[in-house]
Amino acid sequence: MRPFGELEAAVMDVLWRRGTPATVREVLEELNTTRSLAYTTVMTVCSNLAGKGALRREMEGRGWRYSPTRTRAEHSAVQLRDVLGAAGDRDEVLMHFVADLDPESVASLRSAVEAARQAKNA
């Protein structure tokens, strides 16, 4: 899953803090306490996020109401799990414990470990 862009993250943040479905107008008002965005900009971001599956929308009256499909915590967990799977840029940011072993050597290394453990306890 691609991480959110700056504006996408801001929209998600508003919706997560509200906790209830919101119209584009409501999201826009909340965002524009600190910046000045156009209605159409926020509308595009919301429909993109819905397209990506991050938001669900339901028709209410004459417009859509948007709400996040995942909680903030669920979203973060998904992001972290992605880190575990994919190599790439993120490998430079964090340090994994595990080193890969080929399947054949796992068995022989396991028995070497057990032998060492017994020698130590003996």
Partner: peptide
Amino acid sequence: VASALVTLAGMRAPAAALPAAQGAGA
């Protein structure tokens, strides 16, 4: 420490492993 390495590496999908990294782990 060696045991933990083998335990975690043994559970990983082999397809994800790089040959160079395999040698390093062993």
